[in-house]
């Protein structure tokens, strides 16, 4: 080979090496995701030698520390569900209202300050929410509703609802913002008011993005939230079975893991059961994310056309 060819070859090799290095970095996320699944499974699978997977999911009692442990996570599954539903009832109307207000109504001057403020709200650590819930909301609810304890599902739902607002608001706002101007102009041209334009043209057009926001930002985050619920919901593994259960203590899957990992012997059944709960959590959020991703992807494809 001539000198020129050698240097050309070396340069191409150099460029290719750099490219593969960056590719490896980009692939890290998916490798980590894969590793998370592997390790949860590896550490958690042991529990299924003791208990059938269906019994694990539908068992009504949780007593992992006994000599003959009883491992049913239904109370925690339902606990997470209750708290999440409650939180969504708080977060969706507030978050959507804020998104619509910021995207369509707010005067330009206050728009950015409001957005920044909501961004800051998103930055408040969950332990601080938990702490405020503990010292303020718990006693207040107890007195107001004359309850035996203020550590209830409702307490968790209220706090998680507020926590989910910023993320729902910001993803929804992006979705609303992405609606093309023509939609609005066409609506105005037909004599619609601004409010009619919002409800009949803008919101329907951004519905995919908004539902993704609710699934991703809302449900997925809230189900996975740990510290706040751990600190304010009382953590009693009782099955919530009616609307009244909102005023009683409840325990979520996340709280169980955080609460009990310290006392579970490494490698034991209890330890393994907690990892299995982690696996259930991981599966639920993974599915929610896939659904949201699917909705968003389809929406983008549809927009291209």
């Amino acid at each position: 080979m001539t000198n020129k060819q050698t240097s050309l070859f070396r340069r191409k090799l150099h460029e290719r090496t750099i490219k593969y290095f960056f590719f490896a970095c980009a692939a890290t996320s998916i490798v980590v995701l894969f590793f998370i699944a592997i390790f949860l499974f590896h550490e958690g699978v042991g529990v299924f030698r003791v208990v059938e997977i269906t019994d694990f999911l539908s068992g009504r009692r949780w007593a992992p520390a006994r000599v003959q442990p009883i491992l049913g996570i239904l109370p925690m599954l339902l606990g997470s569900l209750f708290v999440t539903v409650g939180a969504m009832i708080v977060a969706v109307p507030l978050g959507l209202s804020a998104a619509v207000y910021i995207a369509e109504i707010a005067p330009p001057k206050i728009k950015n300050p409001i957005k920044s403020a909501i961004e800051l709200l998103a930055g408040i650590p969950s332990v601080v929410y938990g702490f405020i819930g503990l010292v303020f909301l718990v006693p207040w609810l107890q007195e107001t509703f004359n309850l035996p304890t203020g550590f209830t599902a409702l307490t968790g739902s209220l706090l998680l609802g507020v926590m989910a607002v910023p993320i729902i608001a910001s993803i929804s706002e992006d979705a609303i913002y992405a609606v093309p101007r023509d939609f609005r102009e066409a609506s105005y041209a037909l004599g619609a008011t601004k409010w009619q334009t919002i409800t009949r043209a803008v919101l329907p057009a951004s519905i995919s993005g908004i539902s993704a926001a609710i699934i991703l930002g809302g449900m997925s985050r809230v189900i996975g939230e740990t510290m706040t619920v751990l600190m304010v919901t009382g953590n009693a593994p009782i099955i919530p079975d009616s609307i009244c259960s909102f005023l009683r203590p409840v325990r979520t899957m996340t709280a169980s893991v955080a609460l009990e990992m310290g006392e579970a012997a490494k490698g034991g059944i209890h330890y393994s059961a907690l990892f299995a709960i982690g696996l259930v959590l991981f599966t639920i959020t993974f599915l929610l994310n896939l659904i949201a991703d699917f909705i968003l992807h389809r929406y983008k494809e549809a927009q291209k056309r």
Binding site: L274, G278, L288, N289
Partner: peptide, 16 residues
């Protein structure tokens, strides 16, 4: 992968 990693609960990261 990136989107899903963003959705993994923090406590699950702790377990991992």
């Amino acid at each position: 992968g990136i989107n899903n990693l963003a959705g993994v609960p923090s406590i699950v990261f702790g377990l991992f």
